[in-house]
């Protein structure tokens, strides 16, 4: 599914990833853990650059359009699957068949009340869930999510992660919350200073093992 061999990456001229070898098979749920600046986001980007097709993305900064409704922001996930004309009509008059699909996704993320509200008027946590909703709507073989639950509370984090696990077979998550990583993923990659320092099945690890990374 994903195969990276001695890859490195630079960010603003500074090398942030070194000699990354990574093999992810279909169906794996993978968590990237490590301090901020350890290279998690860069690795997510790197994977996206290599495998952009059929991949859903939840970037750290969401990239939502504040002036569009929640519905439209979610719908953007499938722009490429429809004709431009269909998209335009939908922009002006939301297509009811699409609205129903989006609504179902929003229900799962406890966002159904905000279907037609402009994203600009949502809280940070709500925006984050909209970004997740887009990826769920988009579907695909692979989900790449960079800190997808950093702004929502514990209880909601679990709801959101569950939805993501249901929606995608293969997942790579950047997560700073060790508990959640251990609870939801089956494989943990630890990053430190741009290098992979840990790669192990989740059930062989305890929180204490991971704390050393922080």
């Amino acid at each position: 599914m994903i195969q990276l061999q001695s890859e490195s990456a630079s960010y603003h001229g500074v090398k942030t990833l070194h000699d990354i070898d990574l093999l992810v098979s279909k169906g794996e749920k993978l968590a990237l853990v490590g301090q901020s600046g350890s290279g998690k986001s860069t690795l997510i980007k790197l994977i996206y650059e290599h495998y952009p097709v059929n991949t859903a993305l939840v970037p750290q900064d969401y990239g939502l359009v504040n002036n569009l409704s929640v519905y439209h922001n979610v719908y953007i996930g499938r722009l490429e699957q429809h004709t431009t004309f269909y998209n335009l009509v939908n922009l002006i008059r939301p297509k009811s068949e699409q609205v129903e699909i989006v609504r179902a996704i929003l229900v799962g993320l406890q966002l159904e009340d905000y279907l037609f509200r402009p994203v600009g008027r949502l809280s940070g946590g709500q925006k984050q869930r909209v970004a997740v909703a887009r990826s769920l709507f988009q579907q695909g073989h692979l989900l790449l999510a960079d800190e997808p639950v950093s702004s929502v509370d514990e209880q909601q984090s679990r709801v959101v992660l569950k939805q993501m696990l249901n929606g995608f077979s293969t997942i790579v998550l950047a997560l700073h919350d060790i508990q959640l990583a251990l609870a939801f993923c089956d494989r943990i990659i630890g990053l430190e200073n741009g290098r992979i320092v840990l790669d192990s099945p989740a059930d062989e690890l305890t929180e204490k093992d991971l704390l050393s990374l922080y």
Binding site: Y48, G63, N87
Partner: peptide, 20 residues
Amino acid sequence: KLRADASRGLNRYFYELLPR
């Protein structure tokens, strides 16, 4: 700044740029 997976062409114009 658009997301790495942002749409292109007219979709980009109408869904990403124009509303902003």
